[in-house]
Measured scan of single mutants.
Amino acid sequence: KDKDLLKGLDQEQANEVIAVLQMHNIEANKIDSGKLGYSITVAEPDFTAAVYWIK
């Protein structure tokens, strides 16, 4: 199951987060929520590491 990592990002921010996570071998998903911006989700086992790397 995926957990929400970040919400309300613009496309550039979302792409930067995806890139950082991929560099650390964390699979992440970018979801277009329309006017609400983009959300990033990661698998539950990767959540703690993902939070660490996006600081």
Results as ranks from 00 to 15, higher is better:
K1C: 13
K1Y: 09
K1D: 08
K1V: 09
K1G: 10
D2Y: 15
D2I: 14
D2A: 13
K3G: 04
D4A: 14
D4G: 09
D4H: 14
D4Y: 15
D4T: 15
D4P: 14
D4Q: 15
L5V: 09
L6A: 06
L6S: 03
K7Q: 11
K7C: 15
G8P: 01
G8E: 05
G8C: 13
L9Q: 01
L9C: 12
D10K: 09
D10F: 05
D10R: 10
D10L: 08
E12Y: 10
E12P: 04
E12T: 10
E12R: 12
E12A: 11
Q13T: 12
Q13A: 11
A14C: 06
A14D: 01
N15W: 08
N15D: 13
N15M: 09
N15G: 04
N15R: 07
N15S: 07
N15K: 07
E16L: 14
E16N: 12
E16P: 01
V17M: 10
V17K: 02
V17H: 02
V17A: 07
V17T: 04
V17I: 14
V17N: 01
I18E: 02
A19S: 08
A19M: 11
A19N: 08
V20C: 14
V20G: 03
L21C: 03
L21T: 02
L21A: 00
L21R: 00
L21G: 01
L21D: 00
Q22T: 08
Q22N: 09
Q22R: 14
Q22K: 14
M23T: 08
M23H: 09
H24M: 05
H24F: 07
H24D: 01
H24S: 02
N25T: 04
N25V: 03
N25H: 10
N25P: 00
N25R: 07
I26L: 03
I26A: 00
I26N: 00
E27W: 13
E27R: 15
E27I: 14
A28W: 07
A28T: 03
N29D: 06
N29K: 14
K30Q: 07
K30D: 01
K30A: 12
K30C: 13
I31R: 07
I31Y: 07
I31T: 06
D32F: 14
D32C: 13
S33C: 15
S33I: 09
G34Q: 04
G34Y: 05
G34T: 03
G34W: 05
K35W: 10
K35R: 11
L36S: 11
L36K: 10
L36Y: 13
L36D: 12
L36F: 12
L36I: 06
G37Y: 06
G37E: 03
G37A: 04
Y38W: 15
Y38P: 00
Y38D: 00
S39C: 10
S39T: 15
I40Y: 00
I40N: 00
I40L: 04
I40W: 02
T41F: 08
T41V: 10
V42A: 01
V42E: 02
V42H: 01
V42L: 04
A43G: 06
A43V: 04
A43I: 04
E44V: 09
E44Q: 06
P45Y: 14
P45T: 14
D46A: 05
D46Q: 06
D46L: 08
F47P: 00
F47G: 02
F47N: 01
F47S: 01
T48K: 12
T48S: 12
T48Y: 13
A49G: 04
A49M: 12
A49N: 09
A49I: 08
A50P: 00
A50L: 04
V51T: 08
V51W: 14
V51L: 14
Y52R: 07
Y52W: 08
W53V: 09
W53R: 01
W53C: 06
W53T: 03
I54P: 00
I54A: 05
I54V: 08
K55H: 12
K55C: 15
K55M: 14
K55T: 14
K55L: 14
